[in-house]
Amino acid sequence: MSDSTRVQLRKLLASRYTYLVKRLERVTGSKDGAADALHETWLRLENANVSTQVANADAYILGMANNVAIDQHRRERRHLHEDDVEALLELPDELANPERIVAARHKVEALKDVLRGLTPRRRAILLAARVDGLLNREIAEHFGISLRLVESELSAAMKYCLQRMEDIGDAYPGSRSGPRKF
């Protein structure tokens, strides 16, 4: 946009500000929202890129401000309002009671003991798949083994861990399957 066109549009926005706010109020639903959209439009006019003369400056500014208002509305919808955030922060953390923390630590220690019972390669494959989130083909490449062997080792490791955790009474219900990318 040429500097003269940019200056003309900014002058028009300043001189017709009250009219433009009233027109934008219909879009935004509030005078403050309309004013915010026009202020952002003022800033965007500095970087606007139009190579020809603007035929209808009012329509151009209103169209630009309308797009700004829509963008602002979408941003606000994506973010929680302060009241919502404060209400969430005041909710008690039901998972943070001492008994649950101790029980979770006990399960972690039990799982560490179970993992020590795996062969080094099975343990490494299991950790690569379940902790590091590697795909089976990535694990196969990393260890220089076939994809079928990775699947077999991973299955055996999972079965071993599940059985051992059940034996000591620390298995999670429904822990036989879980999300896995192949």
Rank of each mutant, 00 (worst) to 15 (best):
L127F: 07
A37V: 01
D84S: 13
A103D: 09
R23K: 11
L95M: 13
V108S: 08
E138W: 04
L126S: 08
L147P: 02
A96S: 15
N47P: 00
S146V: 04
V131L: 12
L135E: 13
V85R: 14
I70M: 14
L154D: 05
D58Y: 14
G63Y: 05
V21I: 08
R100L: 14
E94W: 02
R122H: 14
L154R: 14
P92G: 04
V131H: 10
K159W: 03
N66W: 11
L134Y: 12
R176N: 12
V50I: 13
D93Q: 09
G144F: 05
L162V: 06
V7E: 14
E151W: 07
G174D: 10
E99T: 09
K11T: 14
E82Y: 10
D132L: 11
N136H: 12
H39W: 04
A69K: 05
R123H: 11
E86R: 14
V114I: 13
H79N: 13
A96F: 10
V27H: 01
L162H: 15
L95I: 09
L118Y: 00
E141F: 04
G33F: 01
I145D: 04
E99Q: 12
P179E: 10
Y19P: 00
K112W: 07
M64L: 15
L62W: 07
A48F: 08
G144W: 07
L115C: 07
I139E: 02
L118Q: 02
A48S: 03
R78D: 10
V114G: 03
P98R: 12
A59G: 03
H79L: 15
A157I: 04
N56F: 07
K31I: 00
E151H: 09
W42R: 02
R78A: 14
T119E: 14
F182Q: 14
E25N: 04
N66Q: 14
S15F: 06
N97G: 05
Y172D: 12
S146I: 04
F182L: 11
V27R: 04
I168P: 00
A110R: 14
E94S: 05
D83T: 12
T28S: 06
D32P: 00
R74N: 12
H73L: 11
G29W: 01
R77A: 11
T28D: 01
R123F: 03
A65F: 04
S2P: 01
E25F: 00
L134F: 09
L135M: 13
P92D: 13
W42T: 01
N66K: 15
M1L: 03
D84T: 13
Y19F: 08
M165V: 07
E94H: 07
T18F: 08
S4A: 13
S15M: 10
L38V: 01
E86H: 09
S175K: 09
